[in-house]
Structure formats: C-alpha cells, structure tokens
C-alpha cells in the first residue's frame, strides 16, 4: 500500500466482504493471544492449574478411588480434561466483559470492521488457549503413565469433539459476560455453576458409588456424557453413543444460548 492510499478515501466502501471479516477475526484473535506475553499470570492459569489438578487427583484420590494412581489416571484424565474445558470457556465471557466495561468494545465497534469479528476473534483465541491446555493435560498424563488406546485418530477425534463442545459452551459464557456488571462476576459465576456441575458427574468418581437420586442426574449431565466420549476416544469403551449425545448437548446449548447471548450483547451496547 502506498502512502497516498493511507488517507481516508473520498468515497468510502459500501460494505465488507467475508474475507475482510475473517482477516479482522484473525487480527483480533492475535490481540487476545499477544496479551499472554504481557500477562504471564494468564499462561500460568492456563498451564499450572490443569497440571496441578492432574497431579493432585492422581496421587491423592487415585489410590482410594481406583486402587492405584495409574488405574485412576486412565479413568480421571478424560474427566479432568472436560472440567478444564468448562472452566476455560469462562475466559470468553471474562474477556468480553472486560472489553465492554473498559470501553475497548466501543472502540472496536466504531471501526469499519465486520460486526461479528470482535466476538469471533475472541472465541478463536480462546479455542487456541483451550487446545493448549488440553495438549498440556494429555502430555502430563502421558508422562505419568497415561496411554492412548486409539492412537492419533482417537486423539484427533477427542480434540475435535472438545473444541466443538467448547464453541457451543462459549455462548453460555458470552451470555454471562454481557449480563454481569464486572469481569470478576464472570469468575464467580464460573465457580458457583461449573464446580457443582463438574463434580456431579462421573468425571472423577464412578457413577455407581453415588446415591440413587444423584445418579439419575449424573447420567444425563453433559460433563458425564463428554467425559465418557473422551474415555472412548482416548482410552477404550463405547464411542458412538457418548459422542452423539455430546453433540446433541452441544447443539442444544448453542440453539438456546447463542440467540440469548446475541440479544444480550445487542441490548448491552
């Protein structure tokens, strides 16, 4: 581009192409990721917390629940991955709320960029962060003795399923992000909802050990369904059933929460 074209054109373009929107999305995703460079705490959040969970659960609960840390890891690592994924989706709402309250969102909206790119860029960046922590979890698990039962294909399938589910769950996070008044409240919501949600599943403990009334919830809990799908893909056991159920959950979440989130965002700004 020459310096002459740097000045604002006399006749501004009428509309944007999809290609331009994708380019804006990539630029805004870069923005969310380059933040990590200046805020190393975020990288610690993404890395240390999941690793700590694997170590604590494996060595503290492993013996009591499965008889040995090694057997427990096989059962619990997919569950820990799911729990981590649920917590990770909250970063979308946290970041969005931060942009809304600090005025960054308004600055972006006053630019001639695709209307959907600020949200898409953020979700793309969060997906990259999500993939990083999943890779880290599996890596640490393998150092501790976790073995892939279905090879690279199973691993690929697990990644794809998790990311698809996270994209759907991100809409819940977006909705929370536009509804609450400050970023910290997104985190409070995360703890208050995601902790009980992930613990009333078979992510960490087999369903049979729980009381009957709880079992009926645990069996339909999306965390259980997704954890079972990951066990099938990464270790062994049924794949098709839990994968289909996970996708149904993802679709249901997206259908309900995407319109609510978009409506909430329109009302907020």
């Amino acid at each position: 581009m020459t310096s002459a074209t740097l000045t604002a054109p006399l006749a501004p373009a009428r509309r944007l192409g999809v290609g331009a929107g994708l380019r804006h999305t990539l630029t805004l995703a870069w923005r969310s990721l380059v933040q990590i460079k200046h805020n190393p705490m975020e990288l610690l959040d993404l890395s240390i917390q999941p690793v700590m969970f694997v170590l604590l659960f494996t060595y503290v609960f492993g013996g009591a629940i499965s008889g040995s840390p090694g057997d427990y890891l096989k059962f619990a690592l997919p569950g820990i991955i799911v729990q981590n994924a649920f917590f990770a989706t909250m970063t979308t709402g946290f970041g969005l709320n931060n942009d809304l309250t600090k005025g960054v969102f308004d600055r972006l909206r006053a630019l001639p960029i695709a209307r959907w790119s600020p949200l898409a860029g953020r979700i793309l960046a969060d997906t990259v962060k999500q993939a990083w922590s999943v890779a880290l979890l599996i890596g640490v698990g393998m150092i501790l003795g976790f073995r892939l039962g279905n090879g690279p294909l199973g691993l690929l399938g697990a990644f794809a399923l998790l990311l698809a589910f996270s994209l759907a769950a991100a809409w819940i996070s977006v909705l929370v992000g536009v509804l609450v008044s400050e970023p910290d409240k997104v985190q409070i919501f995360g703890f208050m909802v995601i902790f009980p949600l992930t613990f009333t599943s078979n992510a960490f403990v087999p369903t049979e050990t729980m009381p009957g009334w709880l079992q009926s919830w645990v069996e339909v809990n999306p965390v259980t369904v997704l954890a079972d799908a990951l066990r099938g893909l990464l270790v062994d056991g049924p794949v098709a059933g839990p994968v289909v159920q996970s996708l149904i959950w993802a679709a249901a979440i997206a259908v309900i929460f995407a319109p609510l989130a978009v409506r909430g965002l329109r009302r907020r700004v």
Partner: peptide
C-alpha cells in the same frame, strides 16, 4: 472518550 478506550494489556 470515556467509553472508547485502548486495550490496557497491550503495549
């Protein structure tokens, strides 16, 4: 302005 601001975490 008050409501259109830079990203504080970026340089």
């Amino acid at each position: 302005g008050q409501y259109a601001s830079v990203d504080e975490t970026l340089t």
